[in-house]
Design a protein around this nucleic acid. Structure first.
Lengths: 330, 330
DNA sequence: CTGTTAGCGCTTTCAC
DNA sequence: GTGAAAGCGCTAACAG
């Protein structure tokens, strides 16, 4: 059924019906209600493509993950998609997905109303220019680093440093003074670079001999922890750059016939799925992805609907407290 | 630029241009080439919404995950989406995502050309009826169980049993005769229910006293393995229903001062991300999701494009061999 | 407040 | 092989 037939059964003109359906002010309340009720009853739904054609609006936003695997874990990606869908859907917008493996089906300006771009470390402002058709398509970019030089897009920067700081503050509170650091071996790492400063800020003194770059696997984490814990004056707490490394560190502790958290406290980073299922459940630094999604979509829809200026925002991580930290052994 | 302007610059009628762009036979080769070249040069792209309106085709398929978290892990979900996007994109179809938290933005018949439905254990044929508008929208459903009673949809059933069988065959080959089973504690589990039969099929005898229902966490897996390995005649190999349980089992082995795989072999199930990063890397049963995606989308597009009948297919799991299995200790 | 009408940009008959 | 013209179903501007 189309709007002509539908209007006919109501003895109204298509104009009136359209206005009622669009919630326009110029319709009398009774008419509006009648239309809405009858539409529900007869199952009339407007043809979205006709609306899109005539209004130039697509009621569609597209999630772009040009380098997906490099930035967000799958868990984060799914949560982000869910969050974006949630708040975009509440405003009547659907979610198109582009995981970025294919170059071919690039967006055209007319196809979507806005873009949520997940930027990786390698994303450049040129990429953004291409993706947004030189800023013609409203966009918000979510990035782990500082905003790129691209004033036409809104930015939501993720910053895990506040969470790391929270972690260290907690350790300090629990009486720890010797805190080890197990790194992921990346050449460029904000967390590692700011670790000494963060230590100082919570009143801890940073000891470079307690810092080791491990790698990516749990086993590398285990070995690093082993090395650290075997030193003359071993740390009483370990901060691991990733949860995977942290699980390795936990292994190392039990290998030394000690236990977490009574002998050694361990804190991870990323809150991967397994972090809660390990023994003991891992205290870890986490970014609240639903918050990220909400922030991003709101910024985007403000641009799309209200023609607002692009904004730049930052969202900090938090510490998820579970069971892998305890007071320092006296 | 629209097709009228574009046609004007070519001194052709819009009809001819449209036919050329649609690769219709009635256009002369030279004209077609001219049109294609100029379109590329001037950056002319047809308005998708106008095409959709007039053709009734959306070039869009929608991925429905009504109960996402219950069936597929996030890794599987992302891989599935990527796979679906890949092959659908190759045919010019875009991917809409519906993670199923919101009831409101349900699909209308006119909005998409087809549905890829990820079914959970709780999905009923009534759900399928609703989702597909009583079969009006072509759909393929991906499910872990047997196909539901809904003849209008195509099905791709996943069956991990072949992979489990492969795992047991390998264990048998390595000389193991006492194989323990660590279950996930679910009331209804195809793997557990078929485990004894599969054992028999590869020439192993199933011993119920070597079978324990653990739970979901690594620690429950550790405890179950500990119990199994402490029995009078302990198993030499452990099959864990999930990788999480398997990592717990590995822990138990080292806790008993033994090692994997030289003293005890361990096999997991699911191939979670962490499975490769653990020490030793876990041999595990995996479903090839890109294959699932390709199978599903091809079945769907056959229905959409060629009006083919819905098909019913099954895809089996495979064993991913890593380092957690070895020959039985002599 | 409601009805009428002109497009939105394209595909697809129907002529030639 | 190409051009002209009739819609696809809707919104929005314009009358009344």
């Amino acid at each position: 059924m189309n709007i002509v037939e539908f209007a006919k059964t109501l003895n109204l003109s298509i104009g009136t019906v359209s206005r009622a359906l669009n919630d326009r002010a110029e319709v009398s309340p009774k008419t509006r209600q009648l239309v809405l009720e009858k539409a529900e009853e007869l199952g009339f739904v407007r043809n979205a493509n006709a609306r899109r054609l005539v209004t130039g609006r697509n009621y569609m936003i597209r999630l772009e993950c040009p380098y997906s695997t490099h930035i967000l874990s799958d868990r984060y990606l799914v949560e982000l998609a869910r969050g974006v869908e949630e708040v975009a859907g509440a405003h009547g917008y659907d979610l198109l997905l582009h995981l970025g493996t294919r170059r071919s089906n690039a967006v055209e300006v007319q196809d979507v109303d806005g873009l949520v771009i997940v930027a990786g470390p390698e994303t450049t402002s040129d990429d953004l220019r291409t993706l947004t058709h030189a800023g013609q398509i409203p966009a918000v970019v979510i990035s782990g680093a500082a905003p790129l030089e691209f004033p036409k897009a809104a930015f939501v920067s993720l910053d895990t440093l506040p969470g790391v700081r929270e972690a260290l503050a907690r350790l300090a509170e629990l009486g720890h003074t010797r805190v080890g650091y197990i790194g992921s071996g990346l050449s460029d790492d904000r967390v590692r670079d700011n670790f000494p400063r963060l230590m100082a800020e919570v009143g801890l003194t940073y000891d470079p001999t307690l810092s080791l770059e491990a790698g990516i696997s749990a086993d590398e984490g285990r070995k690093a922890a082993l090395a650290l814990l075997s030193s003359v004056e071993p740390p009483t707490a370990l901060f691991a750059r990733t949860d995977i490394l942290a699980t390795g560190a936990v292994l190392a502790v039990s290998q030394l016939e000690k236990s977490v958290p009574s002998d050694v406290s361990v804190i991870g980073h990323d809150n991967i799925e397994a972090a809660a299922l390990v023994n003991p459940p891992l205290t870890t630094v986490d970014i609240n992805i639903p918050d990220v999604a909400a922030l991003a979509v709101r910024a985007l829809l403000a641009m799309v609907i209200d023609k607002a200026e692009p904004t730049v925002q930052t969202l900090g991580a938090h510490l998820i407290v579970r069971k892998s930290c305890g007071p320092v052994r006296s």
